[in-house]
Structures are given as structure tokens and as C-alpha cells.
Design a protein around this nucleic acid. Structure first.
Lengths: 160, 160
DNA sequence: CGAAAACGTTAGTGCGACGAACGTTTATCG
DNA sequence: CGATAAACGTTCGTCGCACTAACGTTTTCG
């Protein structure tokens, strides 16, 4: 698809962002993700939480207790970073970290009662934040958007 | 040894990732952007380029020569980072950096003939990379996806 | 004229994704 | 059985990116 590329004519106007640039999905993705991440991070900070906290707590509630390594696989957080996350969660008594009697290499991480409560709160916070994030989209469009993202992500995680 | 890295990453789809987690648009966005960024970065590296190179070159070609500060505004790159980008581009003779005689604070950045050629190459590379990035989507879906991203991004840049 | 602003530049911060390596414990296999 | 490999939790370090602060120079403006 060859378009006529007008070389260098000084158009006028205010802020000129190149069209080719602003149409690139990769660029749109990273720009939007930057905003999204900031939105989420700041929103969660008001609830004394980070994105990772939610990921771990949600995983624990949905699939039950697990070792750190398994949590790492479930949530996509590197196990080197999982240590710190669990420290923070344990400090707040949101999870319990106990050695596995059947396999003394592992710790068994369990969500606590407080953790469950906290998770519910985070879920609400995230609902609101996503409402803001996806504000311009209708409910149907939001679903579709999520589905497209999922398809794309699946495609790139399955393929090495 | 061989699977040393595979041990760190979720490598199959049979893993239990919490549903609530994988439905969050913010999470999908950041995960997908991570993959996308890596794809683009590695692809461009094969052409001895970085994302920012493309942004600057495209801006120069579309809107003509500009000062570093204006390039910064056009492309969203911070002017502190623009310095290094232009150094790299100038090293490769893709742009020319000359002091502005009318305003001795500024440099006037101009794309060179080699820069134009390089830009065409990068455009092709990026086309291919986006083909891979958006592989699961039909042409119509790709357009729609880009449009949705644009709407979302506009919403979050216009609103302070 | 003097203060404020814009410019290019250097240095540095914070964070997230990721890798290397170590000691410990468990699994595997000849 | 014993040796070797693997998995686990942990610590430390790297790299890239978004972003801020500050400084010297030049231009603009009240």
C-alpha cells in the first residue's frame, strides 16, 4: 500500500504529531498503557496497594493456596519479585506464609480473612478505575475490547 | 540448563490464571504492551534502530525540520531523552543538527537523504512487525482496534 | 533595563521486566 | 544406593523507559 508521501512541506497548525506514528498500534498501546498504569497505580496507592497485590490475592482466592513459584506462574510476576510482594502482603496480614511440611523447599501462601476483605475492596477500586479508563467506550465496546486484547495476548504467549 | 528460562515463565495455557485478573483491561494492556514492545524493539534492532528513531524521522519527514524541543512535543519523547536520540541519529548521518541562525538557543534538525531511505526501510519493518502483532485480527478488526485505542488515548490526554 | 521564559544538556530517580547465582531440598536415574 | 539434576526461595544486579531537577545560554516581555 503505497501512499503519496509528501516530503517536507511545513504545514501549519498547533501540535503536529505524525500520522503514521499515531496510527501504529504498538505506539498507541504503549502510550495508552503508560496512562493506564499510572491511573491504576495511583488509584491503588490510595488503598495502600499495588497492582501485584491484587494479582496475588485474586489468584489465591480463585485457586486456593499455592507456593510462591506457582503464584509466580499464575500471575506472571517473576519469582524474584514475588518475594517482595509477599513480604508486603504478609506485613499487612493479608496472606500467611508457612513452610510446606510435605516439601520443605516451598512456602505455602494462604490468603487471610483480612486479605479477603482487602481483595473485595480492591475489586471495587479497580472497577471504578476501569470505568474511568474505558470511559469513552460503551459496555458492548468494552467487552469487545477486552476480547480483542485477550486474543492478541493469547496469540503472543502461545507462540514463542 | 536448557530450560533454565522456561522455569521462570508461564509457558502453557493450562495454567490457572485468575479470571478476574485476565479480564482486567489494564492488565491485558500492560501484558500485551510488554510483548509488543519487545517485538518492536527486537525487530528494529535488526535494522539498527530504536522506536524513538522512527518517531523522530517520521516527524521530520511529515512536518519538516524542527527544533529539538518541538520534536519532543511532536513525538512525546522528553527533551532530556531527545538529546541521546539525536546523537544516535546524527552519528548515523540520518539527520543533521545545525544551530538556528535566527535563534541561537535552538538547533534545527533536518532529515537527510540517508534518513529518508532509512525511514522507508523502517516503515516496511514496522509494517511487518505489526502484521505479526495483529496477526489474529482481520483487517477490519485491526482498523477498529486502532480506532478504539485512539479514542481511549485521546480521552486520557485531553482530560487533565 | 531586568525578570521571566525557552532552549539544549547533564545528571539522577523510580519502577517494572528480567537474569545470575547461591544454598537448600526434592526428584531422577544408572 | 549414590550421584546428578532440578525446583524452590532469596539476594543482587542489569537494562530500558518515563520523568524531574538544575544549569548556562539566549531570547522575549513587561
Amino acid at each position: 500500500m503505497i501512499r503519496a508521501e509528501a516530503a517536507d512541506l511545513p504545514d501549519d497548525g498547533a501540535l503536529k504529531t505524525p500520522d503514521r506514528l499515531s496510527r501504529r498500534a504498538s505506539r498507541l498501546l504503549s502510550q495508552l498503557t503508560t496512562r493506564s498504569d499510572r491511573l491504576i497505580t495511583e488509584g491503588l496507592a490510595l488503598a495502600d496497594a499495588r497492582k501485584w497485590h491484587y494479582a496475588v490475592l485474586a489468584s489465591l482466592q480463585e485457586h486456593g493456596p499455592a507456593s510462591q513459584a506457582e503464584l509466580s506462574r499464575r500471575s506472571g510476576i517473576y519469582r524474584s519479585d514475588m518475594v517482595g510482594v509477599l513480604n508486603e502482603l504478609a506485613e499487612r496480614d493479608l496472606v500467611e506464609r508457612a513452610p510446606d511440611p510435605d516439601d520443605r523447599r516451598r512456602n505455602i501462601i494462604t490468603i487471610s480473612a483480612r486479605g479477603r476483605i482487602h481483595l473485595r475492596r480492591l475489586d471495587k477500586v479497580l472497577d471504578d478505575l476501569h470505568d474511568e479508563l474505558l470511559a469513552p467506550l460503551s459496555p458492548a465496546e468494552r467487552d469487545q475490547f477486552v476480547q480483542v486484547l485477550t486474543r492478541l495476548l493469547d496469540h503472543h504467549t502461545g507462540t514463542a
